[in-house]
């Protein structure tokens, strides 16, 4: 999964047609850490359908808030520079993420 941050978020996520999945996470967020292997497995499976990125909010706080992400875990999908779908907190389960990818992936 591609690591995105304040330097490359514009180029890698917003400036591309997409779809792009962004996993907003942090090392302090235990539910996020628990989700990491699930999302990585989905990246293996759907890597050709959607671009997988992860963003550590600890180093990119302003960017995250700018994206209206103020809670973890949050998994969002972008198309053409716009956020088109998002799952947060309890809704960010493996099954829900997979369904979201199927809906918005290529």
């Amino acid at each position: 999964m591609l690591e995105v941050n304040k330097e490359n978020f514009e180029a890698e996520v917003l400036a591309v047609p997409g779809p792009v999945l962004v996993d907003f996470w942090s090392t302090k967020c235990e539910p996020c850490v628990a989700l990491v292997p699930e999302v990585e497995a989905l990246a293996e499976k759907y890597g050709d359908k959607i671009k997988f990125c992860k963003l550590n909010v600890l180093e990119n706080r302003r960017l995250s808030i700018g994206q209206k992400v103020l809670g973890l875990p949050t998994i969002a999908i972008y198309k053409g520079g716009e956020k088109v779908a998002e799952l947060t907190k309890d809704d960010a389960t493996c099954a829900n993420i997979e369904a979201m990818i199927k809906e918005h992936g290529r």
């Binding site: 909010v57 992400v69 103020l70 809670g71 949050t74 947060t88």
Partner: peptide, 18 residues
């Protein structure tokens, strides 16, 4: 507004609110 400022987990989300 869950995940948009409404939180149930301080350790998860405290950093946003520095």
């Amino acid at each position: 507004l869950r995940g948009k400022g409404v939180s149930y987990c301080a350790t998860c989300d405290a950093d946003f609110f520095e």
